[in-house]
Nucleic acid binder design. Structure first.
Lengths: 131, 131, 131, 131
DNA sequence: GTGGTCTAGACCACC
DNA sequence: GTGGTCTAGACCACA
């Protein structure tokens, strides 16, 4: 029921803010069902030590996940993954996905990749991050 | 043979740096074959006026595109779209695409979308941005 | 003459401190005349078990209520609801209410609600929590 | 078109976090139409000097207002008040208001105030914070 | 000029 | 034990 700090890693050189990297990893682990609603995230201090960053940076990531409704604070215990609720109409969500997918396709074409090289990769990712 | 500044638009509140938005639009137009190698980008001043943006910002976008080999500086004439060359081994390029694609799939799952809702959207985008 | 712990509930994720939630519920039940002066609050231990909360937290809520003159400690028996006395001049009390009411009105406006949507709600609440 | 830092004040003793006080004042000024969509908030540094607090504290307030959709970042210029959009069904919004209003009524009763003392105060506030 | 990020370290409220 | 707040000060990205 507790998530281990070892499941997270940050790349200090990656340009992306550390707190953002952490948030994205929580979202990715959640999408990949490697962490589940009801589980507790490692405490701020524990995570800070494990990743070698300032506790406030972890705290910032957690707070923003809380504001986005991904986790909730349980007083005196820590941060818990929330039951994920799906919002918005289907068409809105498809529009949102299109916005996220379009740059990847642009990139693919820039890399000179053909449809029959792109689709298998998509299916591989869909299997790795299951419904 | 000249690209019009009207083909570009920027959202100063969109989170993404303006110079990045410009670069991404050049890449998207190129991927969608709406602009072609050999064509000239609008001059920095023209673009800056049209978009209501600081000329230095346009200049930065152009310089970055030059660094990435997308355009080349033609002395006295401006920036020209280069013939696009494909670099790297296939596996490297597939790896690159996977990195670009993965966050989009994570987003799709977070939106509660199923395989049979995601794949049609991919194929639509592949048609819009052809090989 | 004894108040049941079932009349209380706490939300450990709700942002508000648990001891504050408990205090507010005592005040609300009292305002709504669902509990009366002379009645005894459940014992700290009983309440702690019923709510699944640390006894120290219950104790803190009770102590605060005692400090505010809402309840009094009866040696060997527990906490009893006191006869409520009204303090301060009318203008002071109105000022106090204004301070409590203003954020609710700000919220109402932020929600785009009009006078004719707000006043009926006020009257409903005044009926539910009678003089 | 620019909002003055003099319109804001913080009470360091009030218990409420400084960044929260600032957020609430922005919301209150907006509800009272003293500031309008399209206007720019004072810069983080300017506000920090005027209020005598750390710039990061101001920044935190601004970021959270941005996350809540109250203001938006205009690159290179600062934070702009957004056009406010009203969300949720009417019944949801009324429920939200009831939650905000109920504690104020409880307080009023605790202060021994009668309906005919409470309603005039409400109407006064409704006039001060107009539709 | 604008806001954003991060650190080190102090202090607080709550459970 | 948990998370939250604030400071002082450094440094960065962007326009």
């Amino acid at each position: 029921m507790a998530i281990l700090p070892e499941q997270f890693e940050i790349h200090p050189t990656s340009g992306a803010p550390i707190y953002r990297q952490l948030m994205d990893q929580v979202l990715a682990l959640l999408a990949g069902k490697q962490i589940q609603p009801g589980e507790m995230l490692p405490s701020v201090r524990e995570m800070a030590v494990a990743l070698g960053v300032n506790p406030m940076t972890i705290s910032k990531a957690y707070s923003r996940l809380e504001l986005e409704g991904i986790v909730e604070r349980v007083r005196g215990r820590g941060m818990m993954i929330r039951e994920q609720k799906i919002e918005g109409s289907l068409s809105k969500r498809l529009q949102d996905l299109e916005t996220a997918l379009q740059p990847a396709i642009v990139r693919a074409r820039q890399l000179g990749l053909r449809d029959d090289q792109i689709t298998p990769l998509l299916h591989k990712l869909l299997r790795e991050i299951p419904e």
